[in-house]
């Protein structure tokens, strides 16, 4: 379980997260939505302790990511939106390093790597330098690295970006399986159709504030909108902006 209690984070004069209190339950897939710069990535990084809140508290499985950083990072699997990987290592070398960092027994690690390599179709790339692989393959490696140590809380920032449809489908099923096993799964995306299809619960943030939370059905009834895109536009107040943009496009 992941909980944010009245969390505030500023970057200079810009408020990235503005007093958000929200709880992401275990056993569910949570989609974190919001326009660019709304604070999604900052919230995700806070769960790992790599971004410190200015005030408020974040709790991961009851632990504070700042004071219990090492313990928290053992239970969290995080794949950032930006590709941050050692490009001059091979995939095998990267996993050798991760195995030792997480203290996973050799046999278990090998079994796990075989499983992930098959699922994400990385078997042919195991001995290649990561820098030589395509953007989509690097994304798969990031996601596989996040899953490698079997985390209790899985946080994926834009995981579907650059994935081919087949692996994208596998990832969706993987997230479902993970949630069914009692883990917490949170992902962000700008593709609202994916969020609608995959997530049990949707959280929408805008300008650092929480503007909506609930299942798609709940939000649909509450906001009186037909689909997630309409819900999103209504709760963020971007509906009129969008209308103006579309009028400009079609010359109304």
């Amino acid at each position: 379980m992941l909980e944010y209690r009245n969390v505030v984070k500023r970057y200079g004069g810009v408020v990235a997260v503005d007093g958000i209190s929200v709880k992401f339950d275990a056993g569910r897939i949570n989609a974190l939505l919001g326009p660019n710069g709304s604070g999604k990535s900052t919230m995700m990084k806070m769960a790992l302790g790599v971004v410190r809140p200015d005030s408020g508290e974040v709790l991961v499985d009851g632990m504070n990511p700042i004071s219990d950083a090492l313990k928290v990072r053992r239970v969290v699997g995080y794949a950032p939106e930006e590709i941050i990987l050692y490009e001059s290592l091979t995939l095998t070398e990267l996993f050798s390093f991760l195995r030792e960092v997480y203290g996973i027994p050799r046999e278990e690690a090998e079994q796990r790597i075989r499983f992930l390599a098959k699922l994400f179709k990385m078997e042919e790339n195991m001995n290649k330098l990561i820098g030589e692989l395509s953007h989509g393959n690097k994304r798969k490696i990031l996601v596989a690295s996040a899953l490698f140590h079997n985390p209790k809380v899985l946080i994926l920032d834009e995981p579907f970006s650059g994935l081919d449809p087949e692996v994208g489908r596998v990832l969706k099923e993987m997230m479902r399986k993970y949630a069914n096993e009692g883990n917490t799964v949170i992902f962000s995306t700008h593709v609202l159709e994916i969020a609608e299809a995959v997530a049990d619960e949707v959280t929408i943030v805008y300008k650092g504030k929480l503007v909506a939370k609930g299942s798609t059905d709940e939000l649909r009834n509450k906001v009186r909108a037909a689909d997630l895109e309409s819900i999103f536009m209504k709760v963020t107040g971007l509906e009129s902006d969008l209308k103006e943009l579309l009028d400009t496009l079609w010359g109304a």
Binding site: S88, L89, L91, F95, F97, R99, R106
Partner: peptide, 24 residues
């Protein structure tokens, strides 16, 4: 090459990783 093997030398993996990065 489909065969792969996790690092099992005398050096800890983080040291091995740093050496590899340097060598490359």
């Amino acid at each position: 090459k489909l065969q792969w093997k996790l690092w099992s030398g005398p050096l800890p993996s983080p040291v091995f990783k740093d050496l590899k990065l340097l060598i490359r």
